[in-house]
Simulated assay, not measured.
Amino acid sequence: MSGSALVARHAGRDMRTATRICSAVLMPIGPACVAVIRLIIPGGSGDVGAEVAANPGAQRLVLLLAIPALFTLLPGAFAALRLGRRHRPTLTVWTAAFLIPGYLAMTVLAAGDTAVLAATDIGLEPATVTRLSDEILGLTLFEGLVFVVGHIVGTVLLGVLAWRARLMPRWTAILLLVSQPTHLVAIVVVNPWLDLVAWGCTALGMLFLGVRTLRTSNDEWDLPPLSSSPSGEPADARST
C-alpha cells in the first residue's frame, strides 16, 4: 500500500459537511421559538401573578418553547459568527462580545418564568406571585441588563455584519438589523403582535444565514482534519 493511501486511511473523519448542515438547521429555531413566546407570555399588564393564574397553560407553553430556544440560540449564534469571521473578523469579534453573553444571560430569565409557574401551582396568591416575580427581577438585574443590551446590540451588529459581508440580500440584512430594536419598542408599548414580528424578522435573518451556510464550501467553513501516520504522528510532523 502506498504512503498516500496509508495517510488517507488513517486520516480523521471529515465532519465539516455534517456540522454545516446541523448549524444551518439550528440557526432559525431559537428566534422562531422566542417569537411565539413573546406573543403568548403572560405579564404584559404588569400583574404577572394574576395573568399566570388566569392562563397557566400559556405559561407552560412558554416554558416548553424555552427548551429548544435555550438549546439552539447559542449554537446558532456561534454558527452565524463562524460564517462571518473570514469576511469581517473585527466586526465579528464585536458582535460576539455582545451576542454571546446576551444569550447566555437568557437562562436566568427562563428560571424566573419557571419559579412563577411553580409558585402558582402550589397555590400562592396572585399578589404574592407578582411580588415574587418582582423580587426575582431585582435579584437578577445584572443578568437582565446583560441580556437586554447583549442580544439587542449583538443582533444589530449581526445585521451590519451580514450587510457588509454580503451574507444575505440587503433587505433581509436590514430586517435583521432592526428586528431587536423593534422588539424593545414592542415591550415598551406592550404589543405582543409587534414582538412576534420583531423576533420573526430575527428568525428570517438567521434562516437566510442558514441557507448561506449550506452553500458555503467545507474549506471556507472550517479547516480539514489533520491526517496522521499509523503510529499516531501527525503527517505535518513527518515532513519536518
Rank of each mutant, 00 (worst) to 15 (best):
P42Q: 04
A186Q: 11
P31D: 14
A54Q: 03
T107R: 00
A110P: 00
I21P: 12
A24V: 06
G205P: 04
A96L: 01
M27F: 02
I67K: 03
L65T: 11
V188K: 00
S179D: 10
V197C: 11
T140P: 14
P126V: 08
R164L: 11
I37K: 08
G43Q: 09
M168C: 15
A97D: 01
E135S: 15
D134I: 09
A111E: 04
S239F: 13
C22L: 12
R38M: 15
L209F: 13
R166C: 07
G154V: 09
L176W: 10
A32T: 13
A162E: 03
A32C: 11
F142T: 15
T17H: 04
L196H: 12
T17E: 13
P230L: 03
A24F: 06
V211S: 03
V197N: 04
A24E: 08
H10S: 05
F71Q: 00
I21Y: 14
A18G: 05
R86F: 04
T92K: 01
V153Y: 00
A69N: 04
T128Y: 00
V211M: 15
V153T: 13
W199M: 11
L137C: 05
I136E: 09
A54L: 04
E220R: 11
P75E: 00
T182N: 10
C22T: 14
T107E: 12
I40Q: 08
A77Y: 02
V190D: 15
M206P: 07
D134C: 02
P75Y: 02
R215P: 06
V178I: 15
D14Q: 07
N218V: 14
F208L: 09
G12M: 08
R82A: 09
A5C: 03
A97I: 12
W94R: 04
T128L: 10
